[in-house]
Amino acid sequence: MPREAEPSLNERQFVLQALRENLRLDGRPFDKYRPVELIFGEQYGVVEVSFGKTKILAKTSAELTVPYVDRPLDGIFTIATELSPMTAPSFEVNRPTETEVLLSRLLEKTVRRSGALDTESLCLVAGQKCWSVRVDVHVLSHDGDLTDAACLAVVAALRHFRKPDTSIEGGLLTVYTPAEREPVPLSWLHSPFCVTWSFYGDQGEMALLDATLSEEHVRVGSCTISMNRHGEICQIAKLGGTPVDAVALLQCTNVALVKVKDFSAFLDRKLAEDAKRRDKGGLMAELSAENDR
């Protein structure tokens, strides 16, 4: 498996010189995303997200297990990220690269640690039975800005997912199959999204949104801001690179909020469209066993 070819000196100069002249190779403004596409699968919890040539597939699944001994009241929620050789032949199976570690770490911080999914609601019998929800993130094609695309895919997959309905009567736990009872959605608290800025120039004075792979190769630093549409910041990661002016960073968070609101509205619209498509004959409201919160 060969190493990924690094961009040549000429390529670097070309991208950088264009940026200095306020141009991007694909002609986008600096603070604009590539066209975002989101397609839900036939099953619940399967979603394919693409940002231009970056393509991500996320699949959510749930299983009954025993909760961790130190957290008897919480369900289990994991996000599994693995970059396969499908992404690029330089990735190997079962050998995580830096890209992969950073991606899973950021997703973990954004979605899991911010409490987007109510893990307590996944517990069925304290200390004995709980749901284990797992999201598998598959990167099909990598053309930059993996974090933002993967985060959107994970949040979309979790919000689209339905777990089997359960009931407890006299200490007897029953899990209903999809044929018996319509599956229920997860208890979702807020939708965080990632917005990644890439910095260019000696002092990192130029900031770009949604950098492509060639732009990512020549950046001097990057900063990932995760927040929800209420402007609540879940995490900010600026891992090394050239120091960036604090005021510029504040400006970045302001723009990020606008983008997060766009993502949120986009996802709500897509979910509503999908619900409408599945709701054949308007029977969904009657089939649903879900109680209002």
Binding site: G41, L57, S61, A62, T177
Partner: peptide, 21 residues
């Protein structure tokens, strides 16, 4: 010659809860 096959969807059995993990 490297061939990667990623399964996206498999048909679900509505009459049984599958062990997915």
């Amino acid at each position: 010659i490297q061939i990667v096959l990623q399964v996206e969807e498999t048909p679900e059995n509505d009459y049984a809860n599958a062990k997915l993990v």
